[in-house]
Each structure stands twice: as C-alpha cells, then as structure tokens.
C-alpha cells in the first residue's frame, strides 16, 4: 500500500482535531450543535482517509471525474457557506456595537 504512510499521518491529524473539538465542548466553548457539525465533518474526513475508494465511488454517482474533484467541490461549497455565516454574524456584531455606542452617547450627551 503506497498510501499507508500518508494515511497514518492524516488519521493522526484527524484524531487530534477530534480531540480538540471534544475538549472545546467540555469547556463549554462549543454548543452541542457546533460540536456535532464539526465532529461529523472530521469523522467524514477520517472515513475518506481510510477508504479512498469511497470518493471515487461518490464521484461516479455524482458524475464528476475523480474522487479528488468531489472533495474540492464540496470543500468550496463548505467554505462559501462558512464565509457567508461569519459575514452575517460580523454584521450583527457591528450593529450591536452601534447600539451600545448610541446608548452611551445618549446617556452622556
């Protein structure tokens, strides 16, 4: 198996990330939903690492050329989604800052 060394390194990394996720959840830094989202995502990564053939299988079903392409497309979609989410959240924070500034200003005059 020529993949073996790469697979082991990738698996160790996945395990590391998963442990971080669980740690954050235990320290109450992640909500249950956030934990679930990230855990499922990284478990999927783990599955793909162990069974590289799975992506090729998926690629065939989806009509995309290669397994790697599926990963790239899904990755792009995910990045766009996360970027969108943080943009909206940032806008909300900006609006909240303005609210606070307004309150302070009206109180002080």
């Amino acid at each position: 198996m020529e993949y073996l060394l790469l697979q082991i390194i990738a698996l160790v990394f996945v395990a590391f990330v998963l442990s971080r996720i669980i740690l954050r959840y235990k320290k109450d830094k992640f909500t249950f939903r956030e934990t679930l989202f990230w855990a499922i995502l990284w478990i999927l990564v783990g599955i793909v690492v162990v069974l590289p053939g799975f992506m090729s299988f998926l690629a065939k079903i989806l009509g995309v050329g290669r397994g790697v392409d599926v990963i790239i497309y899904l990755g792009l979609i995910l990045l766009f989604y996360l970027n969108f989410k943080s943009t909206v959240r940032m806008e909300k924070i900006e609006q909240d800052i303005s609210k606070v500034v307004k309150e302070i200003t009206l109180r002080k005059k």
């Binding site: 500034v101 200003t105 009206l106 005059k109």
Partner: peptide, 25 residues
Amino acid sequence: AIVYKHCINRGLGGALNTGISAALL
C-alpha cells in the same frame, strides 16, 4: 447646537440613528 459625540466612528447610519433618538428625547 446640542452636540452628541460618538466615542468611536460608526458611520452615517449609526450617527443618524443616534440623532433621531436624541431628537425624540
């Protein structure tokens, strides 16, 4: 004039919002 000062710059929207509330007060 009655002058209110924002401690940090918030932009036209923030300033108008403060001004309109102040006028109501």
